[in-house]
Amino acid sequence: LRLEVKLGQGCFGEVWMGTWNGTTRVAIKTLKPGTMSPEAFLQEAQVMKKLRHEKLVQLYAVVSEEPIYIVTEYMSKGSLLDFLKGETGKYLRLPQLVDMAAQIASGMAYVERMNYVHRDLRAANILVGENLVCKVADFGLARLIEDNEYTARQGAKFPIKWTAPEAALYGRFTIKSDVWSFGILLTELTTKGRVPYPGMVNREVLDQVERGYRMPCPPECPESLHDLMCQCWRKEPEERPTFEYLQAFL
């Protein structure tokens, strides 16, 4: 395994491009020591290896001592969030954005069929390849993070704006909380990567959403798509659509 080009840095580690087995181009995620327990990670990795779908980033291998390494397929255009905010983002029109959403829903419909939960679905965790191919990455890892700023769910590192209220408040993460996050991801797509709930801080978002506030229809977004977002944001988790439905609708 060779680490060649550093692609990015996040709160919990770095991402590199490299070569595996001398020939395969891969992405390598390294986790800061202390982010998660190697034992817990190894268990999760076994499950992650079983998830194989064309719209999920394929896991190739893991190094399960500290520092933990995760070796996955390489996606040339990086994260969907950076892609939307970058040069190419300007030229993306609604049909392409909807197609990308459908690809993500397709990957998540598979996660749904496998009775698995992602827990951290957002544009930053979707990767883009050639020809606007989108794949879901980092599934299941969020559960293992041991950082206090994260586990408190009120901490600075927790993605509260993407998280369903029952998950943020009571830790009830299910495929239905993933559906909520998918609704937020749809706003990221239609606004080219704007942060959700602009002008609001995490605490406010939690309070307002509890009181029934939902983001309005983004500019140039059809009402039918906003309606779909609002279905994803129904207060009762069981009233939210399935990913199978979302995939078919898109």
Rank of each mutant, 00 (worst) to 15 (best):
L1G: 04
E4C: 14
K6I: 15
C11A: 12
G13A: 05
E14V: 15
E14K: 15
E14A: 05
E14L: 15
M17T: 07
G18I: 00
T19S: 09
W20F: 10
T23Q: 12
T24L: 07
R25V: 11
I28C: 13
L31W: 00
L31Q: 07
P33E: 13
T35I: 04
T35Y: 11
L42F: 07
Q43Y: 15
Q43W: 05
Q43K: 07
A45P: 03
A45H: 02
Q46L: 06
M48L: 07
K49L: 02
E54C: 10
L56S: 12
L56T: 15
L56P: 04
L56Q: 03
L56D: 02
Q58S: 14
A61V: 04
A61D: 03
V63F: 07
V63S: 05
S64D: 05
E65K: 13
P67K: 05
P67R: 05
I68S: 10
Y69S: 03
I70Y: 01
T72R: 06
M75F: 08
S79I: 02
D82T: 08
L84V: 12
K85G: 10
G86A: 09
E87Y: 12
E87F: 13
T88K: 11
T88Y: 13
T88C: 12
P95C: 07
D99L: 15
A101I: 11
A101R: 02
Q103A: 11
I104G: 04
A105D: 00
A105K: 00
S106N: 14
S106V: 09
S106W: 10
G107T: 03
A109H: 13
V111C: 05
V111I: 08
E112Y: 15
E112P: 05
R113I: 08
N115C: 12
V117D: 00
H118Q: 04
R119H: 01
R119F: 03
D120L: 00
R122V: 00
A124K: 03
N125V: 01
L127I: 07
G129N: 15
G129V: 05
G129P: 05
G129A: 08
V133D: 13
C134Y: 08
K135H: 14
V136G: 02
V136T: 05
G140L: 00
R143L: 04
D147I: 06
E149R: 03
Y150G: 01
T151C: 08
T151N: 09
R153N: 08
G155L: 03
K157H: 07
I160S: 00
W162C: 02
W162S: 02
T163Y: 01
A164D: 15
P165I: 14
F173I: 06
T174D: 06
I184C: 11
I184H: 03
L185T: 05
L185H: 05
L186T: 07
L186H: 03
T191Q: 09
R194M: 07
P196M: 05
P198M: 08
N202L: 05
R203S: 09
V209T: 14
E210M: 06
R211P: 04
R211T: 08
R211I: 12
G212K: 05
R214G: 03
M215I: 11
P216M: 09
P218L: 08
L225F: 14
H226G: 10
H226Q: 10
H226P: 01
D227L: 13
M229P: 06
M229L: 08
Q231A: 11
W233Y: 06
W233D: 05
W233V: 05
R240I: 02
R240Y: 00
L246Q: 07
Q247C: 10
